[in-house]
Amino acid sequence: QTQEFDNEEEARKAEKELRKENRRVTVTQENGRWRVTWD
């Protein structure tokens, strides 16, 4: 699953929550947008 964010702060917040659920999370930056991908 993927979700896009406008800034790193929001993306990192989402990453932190997903990691609490023991998910594999990848955060990438593309064209000024932050993308959080998880399984």
Rank of each mutant, 00 (worst) to 15 (best):
W38N: 03
E30S: 09
E15H: 03
T2H: 09
T28Q: 06
N7G: 04
E30T: 10
A14M: 14
R35M: 10
R12C: 05
T28Y: 10
R35E: 02
R24L: 12
Q3I: 14
Q3V: 12
E4D: 09
E8L: 04
T26V: 13
W34D: 00
A14L: 15
K13F: 11
Q1E: 11
Q29E: 14
E9D: 11
E15C: 10
D39E: 15
R24M: 12
K16P: 01
L18F: 08
W34F: 04
E9W: 14
V36R: 00
R35Q: 07
L18V: 03
T28D: 04
E15Y: 11
V27N: 00
E9G: 08
G32M: 06
N31L: 06
K16L: 13
V36D: 00
D6Y: 04
N7I: 05
E10S: 09
K20W: 07
R12D: 02
T26E: 11
N7Q: 05
E10A: 10
A11Y: 02
L18W: 11
V27I: 09
E8W: 05
R35I: 15
R19H: 06
R12L: 08
N31P: 02
N7V: 05
E30M: 13
Q29D: 04
W34T: 00
V27C: 07
A11D: 01
D39S: 12
G32N: 06
L18A: 08
E30I: 13
A14F: 15
Q29W: 14
W38S: 07
D39H: 10
E4H: 09
N31V: 02
E21A: 13
Q3F: 15
D6N: 09
V27W: 01
D6M: 07
R33S: 06
R24T: 14
Q3M: 15
R35K: 12
T28R: 06
D39K: 05
E15G: 04
E30V: 14
E17T: 09
V36A: 02
T2M: 14
R19C: 08
V27P: 01
R19N: 09
V25R: 00
A14H: 11
E15T: 04
V36N: 00
T28P: 01
L18D: 01
E17M: 13
E17L: 13
T37C: 10
E15L: 05
V36S: 01
R24P: 07
A14P: 00
E4F: 15
V27Y: 01
V36K: 00
E30L: 12
T37V: 10
R19A: 11
E9T: 09
K13A: 14
R35D: 01
T28E: 07
R23Q: 11
R19G: 05
R12F: 05
K16G: 09
R19L: 14
A14W: 15
W38H: 05
E30N: 07
R33P: 01
E21L: 15
E21W: 13
E4Y: 15
G32F: 03
R33L: 10
K16T: 11
T28L: 07
R33I: 12
F5T: 01
K13E: 11
W34Y: 03
A11Q: 01
V27F: 02
E10T: 05
T26A: 07
V25Y: 03
V25D: 00
N22G: 15
R12S: 03
E4W: 15
A11L: 02
R24E: 11
V36G: 00
E10Y: 04
R12E: 03
Q3T: 07
Q29Y: 15
N31S: 08
E4Q: 06
V36L: 08
V27G: 00
A11T: 02
V36I: 10
E17F: 10
Q3L: 15
R24A: 11
W34I: 01
D6V: 07
D6S: 08
T26K: 07
E10K: 05
E10D: 15
G32E: 04
R12M: 08
E8F: 04
T37Y: 10
N22V: 04
E9I: 11
W34G: 00
V36W: 01
R23P: 08
R19F: 08
E10H: 04
E10L: 08
Q1G: 15
D6K: 05
Q29H: 14
T37P: 00
E10R: 03
K16Y: 14
T2Q: 08
E10G: 05
L18H: 09
T28M: 07
T2W: 15
A11K: 01
E15A: 15
Q1N: 14
T28G: 04
V25E: 00
L18N: 03
V27M: 05
E21N: 13
W38I: 10
E9Q: 10
T37S: 13
N22Y: 15
V25T: 04
K20E: 10
R24I: 14
L18M: 09
E8N: 02
K20F: 09
E30Y: 12
R35L: 13
E8M: 04
V27R: 02
R19W: 13
R19Q: 10
R19V: 10
E17K: 11
V27K: 01
E15N: 02
N22T: 05
T28H: 07
K13R: 13
G32H: 04
N7S: 14
K16A: 14
R35A: 04
R33A: 06
N31Y: 06
R23V: 14
T2S: 13
A11H: 00
E30F: 12
E4M: 15
N22Q: 08
W38V: 11
D39Q: 11
V25H: 01
K13D: 10
E15S: 05
T28F: 10
N31E: 08
E4L: 15
R23H: 14
A11F: 02
W38G: 03
E9F: 11
V27L: 08
V36Q: 01
T37F: 10
Q1L: 11
W38F: 06
T28V: 11
K20A: 14
R19T: 08
E9Y: 12
E17C: 10
Q1K: 11
R12P: 00
V27S: 02
Q1F: 15
Q29F: 15
E21T: 14
T2P: 04
K20G: 12
T26I: 13
E17G: 06
Q29R: 09
Q1V: 09
T28K: 06
N31G: 12
E17V: 11
W38D: 04
R23C: 10
K13H: 12
E15K: 02
R33Y: 08
T28S: 12
N31R: 04
R12A: 03
K16M: 14
T26M: 10
N7K: 06
T37R: 10
Q1P: 06
Q3W: 15
R33T: 08
W38M: 05
T26W: 13
E21F: 14
E15R: 02
R33K: 15
D6A: 08
A14N: 03
N7E: 05
R12G: 02
T28N: 05
T2C: 14
L18Q: 03
K20I: 09
G32D: 05
K20D: 08
R12I: 05
E8S: 02
K13N: 12
A11C: 07
E8V: 03
R12H: 05
K13Y: 11
E9S: 09
R24H: 14
R23T: 11
T28W: 13
R33M: 11
E21Y: 14
R23L: 14
E8K: 03
D39F: 15
K16N: 12
T2E: 09
V27H: 01
E10N: 05
E9A: 12
Q1H: 14
K20Q: 12
E17A: 13
R33F: 09
K13V: 12
K16D: 10
E15W: 09
A11P: 01
V36E: 00
E15Q: 07
N7Y: 06
T28A: 06
R24W: 13
R12Q: 04
E10I: 03
G32W: 02
N22E: 05
R23E: 07
N31F: 09
R35S: 05
K20L: 14
N22H: 13
Q29S: 09
R24N: 15
T26G: 03
G32R: 03
K20T: 09
R33Q: 06
R35C: 05
E17W: 10
T37H: 10
R24Y: 14
N31D: 09
E8H: 03
V27E: 00
T26S: 09
